[in-house]
Design a binder for these strands. Sequence first.
DNA 1: CTCTTTATTTAGGCATGACTAAATTTTTAT
DNA 2: ATAAAAATTTAGTCATGCCTAAATAAAGAG
Lengths: 236, 236
Amino acid sequence: MLTVSVENYLKAILHLQVEGDDLVSTTAIAQKVASTPASTSAMLAKLGERGWLEHQPYHGVRLTKKGHRVAMDILRRHRLWECFLVDHLGFEWDQVHEIAEELEHVGSVELTNRLDAFLGFPKLDPHGDVIPGPNGRFRSVAARTLLTEAPRNLELVVVGVVDGGDAFLRHLGVLGIQLGTRMTVLERLSFDGSLHVKYPEEEEVQLLAPSVGQRLWVDQSSPAPEILFPEEEDLQ
Amino acid sequence: MLTVSVENYLKAILHLQVEGDDLVSTTAIAQKVASTPASTSAMLAKLGERGWLEHQPYHGVRLTKKGHRVAMDILRRHRLWECFLVDHLGFEWDQVHEIAEELEHVGSVELTNRLDAFLGFPKLDPHGDVIPGPNGRFRSVAARTLLTEAPRNLELVVVGVVDGGDAFLRHLGVLGIQLGTRMTVLERLSFDGSLHVKYPEEEEVQLLAPSVGQRLWVDQSSPAPEILFPEEEDLQ
DNA sequence: CTCTTTATTTAGGCATGACTAAATTTTTAT
DNA sequence: ATAAAAATTTAGTCATGCCTAAATAAAGAG
């Protein structure tokens, strides 16, 4: 049975797993769901029994394939509803999170897929985050997005520049960026739109000025094949 | 705090109160919410304490003004979502009840009012039931609805006939129906669209053939003034 | 390598909302 | 008017999901 509470835990774990390490700690999850480590520990045991995650006591937790799929479905619903709220009900992008947090727990697959179609199969939500498709995987992002607009936590490739002027290209050279360079946007700073960017080879995180982000075309690093309808896996 | 469970009880009581008598019995409520009389008894005590209803032990229950308002808000959300599901997501009218049953518990007032506006302030849901407005009262129904299309459980007046032919008017005479006759539709039978109709003077319920219902124009018996925005009452 | 700090789990409770079985009140029928 | 039937409430449990406090395991510092 998928209670609201269970869904929130799975969603939190997915979030932490995407953002950071492989194994997710009990304390980190507790913080995300605004609960205590003790309560979380009990819940993790239960989620483990039900086959949604592997729990290595004292070391952390990792979603199973099944758990990952369930969490992606929740994320999908959340982000689709955010699109609806902004595009059709006229909410601002910063007002929709809480409401979507409630709507995401309405679990009808039929509803989700029809909403998706109604919205025109959007790829990004109003915050610029990728929307999972009905198959539970992220949709490939349209080729040639501006880096500034690109989703976070997804490996991207630089495929072009908006402004081919000498000065800008020289600046890219200084930054070590060229066509084919791979990178992942970790965060978009609300202050001026600067981007925290990570390169696969390097450890350190770089801060990219908005003037650079706005002039770079990027695409998804290794686009997954798009499949429109879910495989028939038993999600129980 | 308005839990899903509490909302379902209030909704059930409103339903039974509108359909039938003044005082609603514990057993009837238990049936509506698919629970036992014992559990229901405990819940009614709680709802009484919180000021949503008056509980006369062993005799039944009646919503207070405050409880009525809360229940009407839930009904409003339910019926608005049903409109959305049918009009914009392409569901059939008989597939939407269960989904709306979940959506109705998302309680943001802002969301409800924006959804209402998006839908064009509909007066009737896909089943032909009246949608409460943001003030928690039923909206006045458009003048001249066909009896077949009219909402249930609302007193109506016959204001005209579609077909003024002799045969039909004679038939109306036999049925005791004329301009100004008041009646309430209790149920629409899915078999052929026949209507269970009650006249204020008489005790018995009459069955009206669809051929009659399709030829009668009706209006709301005593239209309430339309108020678009909610009064500021403290709903707790 | 051991001691201290930190993270995690276990133990024991609590509120909500459900249940069954038993007691009590109301209603109905004779 | 009273006995039988029906409805309602009370008493005693249970599962879920949360909490605090205490015990235990892992990680880090010297």
